[in-house]
Simulated assay, not measured.
Amino acid sequence: MIKHDVGEKFPGMRDHILGEESNMFTNTAGESVEVTIQSTPEETKLLLTKVLDENQEAAALLAEALHATPDTVLDSRLQDLNFDLDMDSIGIWIDPIDSTSEYIKGIEDEEPKSGVYWHGLQCAVILIGAFHRETGSPVLGVVNQPFSKQDPESKSWTGHSFWGVSHGDFHCNSLLSSQGSSTTPISRNGLAFTMSASEEAHTKDAFSSLGRVHFASGAGYKILCVIEGHVDAYILTKGSTFKWDTCGPQAILKSLGGGIVDYQKWKSSSTDAENGNFLASAGLKYDKPDSEEPVSEGQKWSNSGGIIAYIDAEVLKKIHGASQD
């Protein structure tokens, strides 16, 4: 849906919209079907029935949703943005649902710890990021959290979208007031991090000695916790995230003065001076794979050196020693 709508508005970008999911499906009869939005709901319904084993009702409901015009309210700050950006030089990475397992489980009653949900629907997010195809640098990012808050009486959910722009000297985002300060500063004692529960024990111990560690679900959500200020950094030592996970969030972090860098490269910068020089020019790139060496298709677009997401570079200096353990 996102690829279709963006491609319609910006035809020059249509072949440069990339992501985790494929629109090729195989039904129970073994027939492969490429799903694309057709000119009319009826045509889209006919295509979807092939995928859904002739389930007319489900196909009709999906087609109706795909062709509906969403009722959206544009952030007023977006209307005031004024900067030059050649849309024909832009590529897009999309993850239509990050933390799929949490979405499938549908856990609604998880309680946060210091603002961080370790599991639950709150961890399921939609990630969209735009990058310069020549430089690979992220410039625009959106993180949509459709299950942000639940009404205790009606049980209905309210979503929350975060966006950021970082293009040259221009920086703007949904988390800053007109005075340029955070609208909801978070007060807490000591450092805090998000990490994956699958990290090695010695890595967990090293960073736990420096502050509180939250083992939350979903890469996108863990970075969102950095964006919102619930934690100081998201640390991942393994290459288990992908370009579609980090492009959008990195653009938002850049607009806040932070970023996302390759963990292994950051770890190898052994002194504060080297670390500072590294951060001044570093950042994940999105125009090509990390390695020119042949890798499996599934790992082609991975952030192979791991990642560390942050807002304040001073925090990285404080924790750099722990990465050497």
Rank of each mutant, 00 (worst) to 15 (best):
E34A: 10
G180N: 03
S178N: 15
A60F: 02
K155I: 00
E292D: 14
L66G: 07
T26Q: 14
H119C: 10
T40I: 01
H171L: 10
C225M: 13
K317Q: 11
Y221N: 03
V295A: 06
A192H: 11
H320F: 15
K50A: 09
I92H: 02
H160Y: 12
E8A: 14
W157N: 12
K300T: 05
C225I: 10
C225N: 15
M1E: 11
I90T: 14
V315Q: 04
V73M: 12
A251R: 01
G115E: 09
S281I: 04
H171G: 05
E111T: 13
L66W: 14
C247S: 13
F207I: 03
E134S: 15
G30T: 04
A273K: 15
I107M: 15
G276I: 03
K105S: 03
C172Y: 05
E20S: 07
F170M: 13
T203F: 08
H230C: 14
A58K: 01
D109W: 01
E8C: 11
T69H: 06
R14A: 13
G106D: 03
Q122N: 14
V213G: 01
S304P: 02
S156A: 15
A233V: 14
P152C: 13
I223D: 01
A280V: 08
S101P: 00
M24Y: 05
T40C: 01
K317C: 03
S217F: 08
T237L: 00
A58D: 02
D84K: 03
V142R: 12
P96Q: 04
S269H: 07
P138G: 13
A233M: 12
R188Q: 13
T184L: 06
S161W: 00
I107R: 14
D84Y: 02
L18R: 13
Y286S: 07
L236M: 09
G283C: 05
Q150A: 12
V143K: 05
I186S: 09
D88I: 04
C247N: 08
V261Q: 02
I37H: 12
C123P: 01
F25T: 05
I94A: 11
I2Y: 04
D80T: 14
G159Q: 00
G190P: 13
I235K: 04
A313R: 08
I37C: 14
I223C: 03
Q79F: 08
K105H: 07
G141A: 05
G259P: 10
G115F: 08
F83C: 14
T28R: 11
V139Q: 11
Q324A: 12
I17C: 11
N27G: 07
A63Q: 05
V261P: 00
E110H: 11
D290C: 02
G19W: 04
S161H: 00
I104A: 13
G258F: 06
D15C: 00
S89A: 11
G298V: 09
L256I: 11
S156C: 10
K267F: 10
D15W: 00
E31C: 08
K9N: 03
A313V: 03
H230A: 15
N173D: 10
K285S: 05
D262K: 08
K9Q: 12
